[in-house]
Design a protein around this nucleic acid. Structure first.
Lengths: 155, 155
DNA sequence: CTTACGTAATTGACGTGTCAACCAAAACGG
DNA sequence: CCGTTTTGGTTGACACGTCAATTACGTAAG
């Protein structure tokens, strides 16, 4: 039994609170904008962005999940929903009988090409424009550091 | 028709990508830890934290939603689920017939007091420990700036 | 060959979040 | 007062995410 847990000191707590609230508000607004401006959710956007940046708009299922760092069941459900709406299709993989490809359809391409400009505007308006170029770099660098730290850390 | 949208330049895009990936990975891990270490979800934790930091463990519904910056329907569903599990109760509001109070039950207190130490450890391990005190301050300051920027911004 | 084990991906159940519609009490304007 | 609008809060339908279990194929060992 840990007698007295090591609480965060006031400066740490303040930094954490600001970060968490900012992050939540930002991603919340962005995904609501996406949803109402286009017919894509944030999840749809991420998947289509990954696919369309890839050779032929196709990717192996597992590579896709790693690329966007999702769990495979999440991706499977997502791909299922997107397939139902005609944004992607599943294809079999010749060299591995268990494998699958996920492929962006022409509609998928159309959808993300339509959605991207406005989305980028919102990212710019809500996030990029809040900071100077130098501050933005700093934030990016610190984010990368936290990311690297987490990757060296168990689970 | 916008001829050529203003895309992010490479540095901006890099900063944005790092931030987004970091944030997603961090909150994902933290909420999975909460879920498996305690019997609270991240949402439960946020609500109970707000309530138990407040006089008498009770708050007006709307104040609660503003405090954690959620939409009211989200809060209503959440409170409903938590009430079903005995973590909170709803009470009527005498001075406003439409109003409601949300109150943390003893079990609610017990649950968050049990969950908090481990949760804080994870926050420390995954986030705080990744940065020096000075870097952490910087990140907090930049987050606050983005937050303030968003608050001055339409929707 | 076959048994066993690991890997690729799907499924189902359930908790969670969003949107739009709704309801009831309050506040306001005549 | 009475009708209208605003405010506080709930509801239902549906999209989304997680976990645990499952299917089906690949691979290596005896």
């Amino acid at each position: 039994m840990n007698a007295t847990p090591r609480w965060l000191d006031p400066e740490q707590k303040a930094a954490w609170d600001h970060f968490i609230r900012m992050q939540e508000k930002l991603v919340g607004r962005l995904s609501r904008h996406l949803q109402s401006d286009s017919k894509l959710s944030a999840a749809d956007y991420v998947v289509l962005a990954a696919l369309t940046e890839s050779e032929g708009g196709r990717m192996r299922f597992l590579n896709l999940t790693r690329r966007v760092e999702w769990e495979k069941s999440r991706m499977s459900h997502q791909v299922g929903r997107m397939a139902k709406r005609g944004l992607v299709t599943r294809e079999e993989c010749p060299e591995d009988g268990r494998g699958a490809f996920v492929v962006a359809t022409p509609e998928g391409y159309r959808a993300i090409e339509e959605a991207a400009p406005l989305h980028v505007e919102h990212v710019r308006r809500l996030f990029i424009d809040a900071l100077t170029q130098e501050e933005l770099d700093t934030l990016g660098r610190l984010s990368a550091r936290v990311l690297a730290h987490m990757e060296q850390q168990p689970d």
